[in-house]
Each structure stands twice: as structure tokens, then as C-alpha cells.
């Protein structure tokens, strides 16, 4: 009954949308959607940067959609549990995923088997923000620039370690990419999340770390940590003085991104409605202000642009993961 009902409604809606597109030349928004609350699945623990982005955006999307968008944390397996839940959810737009570089580019490459296909199992909605990573060192480490760090690591290979938020995380890969591109040796020390890792870098138990810029920006400003460089191609607007890693190690670029996905098969007009709500939320000045304080850059996109972005990210990380020989079960 329910299946039939759904497909019929979907076919009807798709037909209507096609007709409307032909007539008006612009996608019509799904009629009657949403008529109940939408669940935005965050595949990480509450309180982290992805969670914060989700909550800020969900709040504004609720206002626009006229229905509550609630955030549900389904943490586990590096984001795979939550992503898999959404991939297998009813493709009706009422369950959407706050995806990241981890769920949609790195995990499928690193893990021997991923329960979902990052491209085929999802209907992209919109890219939201890009968050730079930053190369930080304890102030007692006698280096002030990336070039000095490279020289130090080359002078004493194998002596220094770097901390990361865990095996196979974007921050770990930022470190591995740095090692291979700069031709240096550092021992990798994984932690359970960025918090404890940061703690040990501040306490100089481990001298070097790649971190998300938002979580260490306070420490860089007060000098408890020394920020050497950001990992994006351009300098971060919140730290205009800080160089990029790419200025010393040409071609180096990594960052973390957040984007919304629906399960594959979600009607295009529902995706369009959600895309519209997400982009309106990003355009809100209060959201913009929060994101800037948070050192995140608002991007926004069409569903097609996000699809292309995922493809490009997978292509970019494939050789990195292969060269670093990171393979998890």
C-alpha cells in the first residue's frame, strides 16, 4: 500500500515538476513539502564542529520550511553509521544527512568496505561551508614558519611526533599529505577526538598537530599555541597574517567541508526545496556572522555543484590515501 502510494505520489510530483519547469523555466518547489518535522542526521557526537554547523543551519532552515528541522546525532565508525542510516532511509526528504569530507570522500577510500556508496546512494542537496585546517605547534618548539619546521624535521628525522584526532580522520590525512609532500618524517599519534589531542599539544606532550582552525583559533590568538599556517589555498579571513602551507610546500591544500545530502531517489523538487532553504539559511546575516567567528567559510551550492564537488574530492584524495598506505578494516 505504502510503496504504491509513494511511487504514485512521486511520479505525479515529478510529472508536475517537469511540466512546471517547461512552462516557467525554473524548478517549482515541492507542493506540500514539508508537512512534518525533518530529521537532520549528524554522524558525529554533539558539540563538535560538524554538529555546531548543523545546529546553526537547521535553526534557520526550520524558519524557512515552516517545520522543525531537528538534529539527531548518530555517531560511530568515523561517521559511517549516521551516513549509512540516511542512505537507507525513506527517500522522501524527511531524513537528511550533514555529510563531511570524511563521510563522502575519505571513509570510502580508507575503509576496506563502506556500507554505502558516497555517490550513488545519496542525492546531493547543497554544499554548506568549508572549514580550514591549521598546522599548529607548541610554542616551545623552536620554529616560527613552515620552512623552519621542515628544516627541523629533516635535521632530526624520526624524533618528532604529531597528534591527530584519530586514525583516518581528515586531520590525520592532512598530516600524512604534509609528510609526503614536504618529504619529512613524523610519528603519528592518534587520539580519540581533537580535544584530548589539543590538550597534549598545549602541554607539550606532543609538539605538532593539524587541527580544525575553529577549535584552536582561541589558543593561537592568546599564544598558548603557535599557528604556523592554514591548509587552504587562500589565507583564512579570520587570520590574514597567517600564511598557507602551500606557500612553503607548493600544491598543498586540505580542508574540511560540510554538505547536506538526502537518500538517493529523493524527488528532485523536494531536493530543490531543501536546497533553497539551506542556501537561504546561509545567506542570513546572523548565520554568516556565526560562521565567520567560527572561521568557517560559507560556500553554498546547487545540488549539481555538490555532486561534482564530491567527485572531485574523491579524485583528489585517492592518490593521497594510496601513497600514505592508510587502509582500515
Amino acid at each position: 500500500m505504502r510503496r504504491l502510494h509513494l511511487t504514485r505520489r512521486r511520479a505525479l510530483a515529478a510529472g508536475l515538476s517537469l511540466a512546471a519547469t517547461l512552462a516557467l523555466g525554473s524548478p517549482v518547489l515541492a507542493e506540500g513539502f514539508p508537512d512534518r518535522q525533518i530529521t537532520m542526521v549528524v554522524p558525529f557526537a554533539a558539540g563538535g564542529s560538524t554538529d555546531v554547523v548543523a545546529r546553526i543551519v537547521a535553526q534557520k532552515m526550520s524558519d524557512d520550511l515552516g517545520q522543525q528541522v531537528i538534529v539527531q546525532n548518530v555517531a560511530g565508525a568515523g561517521g559511517n553509521l549516521g551516513a549509512d542510516n540516511v542512505a537507507r532511509a525513506e527517500p522522501d526528504g524527511y531524513t537528511i544527512l550533514m555529510g563531511t569530507v570524511a563521510t563522502h570522500a575519505l571513509n570510502p577510500l580508507i575503509l576496506k568496505s563502506t556500507p554505502y556508496d558516497a555517490e550513488k546512494d545519496f542525492a546531493p542537496i547543497s554544499l554548506l561551508v568549508v572549514v580550514p585546517n591549521v598546522l599548529i605547534v607548541n610554542p616551545e618548539l623552536p620554529v616560527k614558519t613552515v620552512a623552519e619546521l621542515v628544516a627541523l624535521l629533516k635535521a632530526e628525522p624520526g624524533k618528532y611526533s604529531y597528534a591527530s584526532s584519530g586514525n583516518g580522520t581528515p586531520l590525520h590525512l592532512s598530516g600524512e599529505l604534509f609528510k609526503s609532500m614536504a618529504g619529512v618524517e613524523m610519528e603519528h599519534i592518534p587520539y580519540k577526538g581533537a580535544g584530548p589531542a589539543l590538550n597534549d599539544v598545549i602541554g607539550n606532550q606532543v609538539p605538532i598537530m593539524f587541527d580544525n582552525l575553529p577549535s584552536s583559533s582561541g589558543h593561537i590568538k592568546t599564544g598558548t599555541l603557535r599557528g604556523l599556517a592554514v591548509t587552504t589555498k587562500e589565507r583564512a579571513p579570520s587570520f590574514p597574517e597567517m600564511p598557507t602551507v602551500g606557500e612553503s610546500v607548493p600544491g598543498y591544500e586540505t580542508y574540511t567541508w560540510n554538505a547536506l545530502f538526502a537518500p538517493a531517489g529523493t524527488p528532485p523538487e523536494v531536493v530543490a526545496r531543501l536546497n533553497d532553504a539551506a542556501n537561504k539559511a546561509l545567506a542570513d546575516p546572523a548565520v554568516a556572522e556565526r560562521m565567520t567567528e567560527f572561521s568557517a567559510t560559507i560556500v553554498g551550492s546547487t545540488p549539481e555543484e555538490l555532486a561534482a564537488h564530491v567527485k572531485a574530492e574523491i579524485a583528489k584524495w585517492t592518490p593521497v590515501v594510496r601513497d600514505a598506505k592508510i587502509q582500515l578494516d
Binding site: A45, A46, G47, S49, I56, G195, K221, T224, E289, R290
Partner: peptide
Amino acid sequence: NPVMALMVGAMIIQGIVPGPNV
């Protein structure tokens, strides 16, 4: 602990960057 992690999240939502400068 996880509760404290949520409070960090709450600070960030409020536009306060947690750190030694608070």
C-alpha cells in the same frame, strides 16, 4: 567529558571561542 564537549558547542554557537582567553 561529553557533557563538557556540548558546552563547548554551546559557546561556539554563541560566538564565544573557547580557550584561555575566555
